[in-house]
């Protein structure tokens, strides 16, 4: 396989190394915050796969996040499966949900697509409430203590340890980043972009655009679900608010700020937004206004986000 876009690969490697080193440099709280940022940016990276690279704007990605969260969380809560198995089940759950929803939703386009994804996600959210006896509804479920550590290949990983947690999040992040690099910078990624830029033409060239979009959708949903599974297992809590509209909007927001269609944009967007909210919430209750203003401002003047703007002006390889 030929290597595409070596510069970007180098940047990704440097980013991962910097992230790894940061845990020794940052004060404890920022390391904790960075753990969360890594998980949520996996969510945003999944979202970006669909929105940034393939040009399909979904308003319902909380559904996939929640699919991973519940599949992983419920299986360990009720069946006591070990965390690695629960994590795998979470990924499989998200894969199944995104495949089915993708098959349906991709029959629509543009605004209809946004609304269909929104409605499916809303139905999913309501189902977590409807089956409260299983899911714990909006009060949620707290995972038992024995679901807070696991042994794998002789190592015992304790989910309550901040170091273990950070490095595990970084590991998953790196794997996802690697997978996304391979997908987006390779031939498949070019097909995604082709669909984004001009779907009829791609179709005319003999490609099955429905299949391409379904692939992007499923990959996107599965990655989002991976983040959900990771979040649930790491923080030991699953609840319906993760399936709500706000969560979908956050993925959109992170991606938009960082730069849709750039590999590292979601990480940057998640970091900026998470820290911004975190700083503001102690100072003012009006941080929702800040989010609102940012959404509008970014959309008005930087529709390509931070990295997208940099890419368009200076660094063309940053994609």
């Amino acid at each position: 396989m030929t290597l595409h876009n070596g510069k970007l690969l180098a940047l990704c490697v440097v980013t991962v190394i910097v992230l790894f080193v940061l845990q020794f440099v940052l004060p404890p709280y920022l390391t904790l915050a960075l753990t969360r940022i890594l998980i949520l940016s996996v969510f945003a990276m999944g979202y970006n796969m669909l929105m940034g690279y393939t040009g399909l704007l979904s308003l319902g990605h909380a559904m996939f996040f929640a699919a991973g969260l519940y599949a992983a969380g419920l299986s360990t809560y009720y069946w006591g499966v070990t965390l690695p198995v629960a994590f795998l089940l979470g990924i499989i759950g998200a894969f199944a949900v995104s495949l089915v929803i993708g098959l349906l939703a991709l029959r629509t386009q543009a605004v209809s697509f946004m609304i269909v994804t929104l409605m499916f996600a809303q139905a999913g959210y309501l189902m977590t409430l409807q089956f409260t006896s299983i899911t714990g509804g909006d009060q949620g479920l707290t995972l038992p203590t024995d679901a807070r550590s696991f042994g794998l290949f002789g190592f015992v990983v304790d989910m309550t340890s901040d170091t273990a947690r950070f490095n595990l999040a970084l590991l998953i992040f790196t794997v996802v980043l690697g997978v996304l690099f391979a997908i987006t910078q390779g031939p498949l990624g070019r097909l995604f972009v082709a669909v984004r830029e001009n779907e009829p033409r791609t179709q005319m060239l003999g490609f099955d655009t429905y299949a391409i979009k379904l692939t992007a959708f499923t990959v996107s949903g599965t990655i989002s679900g991976t983040a959900g599974a990771l979040y649930g297992l790491m923080f030991g809590y699953i609840g319906s608010s993760f399936a709500g509209f706000q969560n979908s909007i956050e993925a959109l927001l992170y991606t938009l700020i960082g730069g849709p269609g750039t590999l590292l944009g979601p990480l940057l967007g998640t970091a900026v937004m998470t820290m911004l909210i975190d700083r503001l919430s102690g100072i003012t209750t009006a941080y929702l206004i800040v989010i609102g203003v940012l959404l509008i401002v970014v959309n008005l003047w930087f529709p390509k986000g931070i990295l997208g703007t940099i890419r368009d002006r200076w660094l063309g390889w940053l994609k």
Partner: peptide, 14 residues
Amino acid sequence: PKRGVELIEKFSAE
């Protein structure tokens, strides 16, 4: 709930 978890970390570590 999500913000609740973040805040307990913030209170504890920061």
